[in-house]
Amino acid sequence: MSPHVILRVVSKLLIPLIALFALYVQFHGDFGPGGGFQAGVIFASAIILYALIFGLDEAKRAIPPSWVRIGMSTGVIIYGGTGVATWLLGGEFLNYTFFAPDSTHAAGQHWGIFAVELGVLCTVASAMVAIFYAFGSRTTELTDEDW
């Protein structure tokens, strides 16, 4: 049993809430402060907290590095794909109006922004986790006692 019992219990409670908050920030970003970047960073921080408390190997079992690698590129593809989709619909690159040209309430813009923010979320969250994995997996020269 590790000495950090309180940390473990509290973070087990907190981590799902942090992930949920990230999703709230993501999907409420059109109406209040927030958006893909913030949501991505918050989501990554949930995983980082898990890794800090339960160890990197546990975190890597929950979110394997291969997922992270795929997620990083998927986000860019979603974003770029949105632009290509507007091309195919006859508009300019990333001109979202062409998703719903007849809408009076700019529905096309809403869909476009939604898709783009999803891509941003995917890339930012995965890239942050990847960066943390990379730093965390390097072997340390310092032990806990050195502090």
Binding site: G29, D30, F31, G32, P33, G34, G35, G36, Y79, G80, G83, F93, L94, Y96, H105, A106, Q109, H110, G112, I113, V116, E117, V120
Partner: peptide, 20 residues
């Protein structure tokens, strides 16, 4: 755009290429 958050609107739509 008809969205309340101007920053999101500018970031994702008007300056979408930038954000890409």
């Amino acid at each position: 755009i008809i969205l309340p958050n101007v920053v999101t609107a500018v970031l994702a739509s008007y300056r979408g290429f930038d954000t890409f």
